[in-house]
Amino acid sequence: MTLETIESEIEANVPGCVLEIVSNPSPSGQHSLRIDPAHAVAIATFLRDAEPLRLDYCSNVTGVDWPGKEISEKVKIKKLVDGVEQEVEEVRKTQTLGHLEVVYHLYSMEKKHGPVILRMSTEDRADRVHLPSLTPVWRSAEFQEREIFDLYGVIFDGHPDLRRILMWDGFQDHPMRRDYVEPDDFEYEPTPHDEVLERARQHRTIMGVQ
């Protein structure tokens, strides 16, 4: 079954959904289907249960970070230079928002075919990072979605147990994001030792010793 027929099947059965085929130029030829988050659970349930496909096995859930880019373009603008109107080139810079993406690789254990690849994107990378969880449809997504929440910061609505899974609970950031910067010291705590060191440093400065 080609991706085009899968797309039309979904469109016929899930009213109102917005789908887009994302083509993959690499020799693997694994094209994917971008689905809209609002209908994701309905689409997933349809793909799992509908007869010709029966994608009962959600193998892999991946988070991908696409940070915003600065796009600079040259624009010609008419300007008054020394009282004469001239065409001047100007560089205009625009910042795109960027987004976080979640990719699901689906197989069928019953019919032994696959993969069918679904993608979903958040609106941006800051505070509109909510996506519906597909764990109620495929339980296998439970730990993998928790991992994406932990490492990328996507919030899965409807996930039964959304907690950090690999990093510790008090950890703040999302280390798999492209712009993550590792702190110098994860477990910095001021200790009495620091005061002693500071006094020793001052002493050395006073004494003129480096």
Binding site: N24, N60, V64, P115
Partner: peptide
Amino acid sequence: KPGEAYAHIEAPKGDLGFYLISDGSSNPYR
């Protein structure tokens, strides 16, 4: 070349898969 690929095998512990996204550089993007 830019693109992506997913391959999986039957490892002794189960279905072991690798998913790669290339942006055309020498490191995988994902």
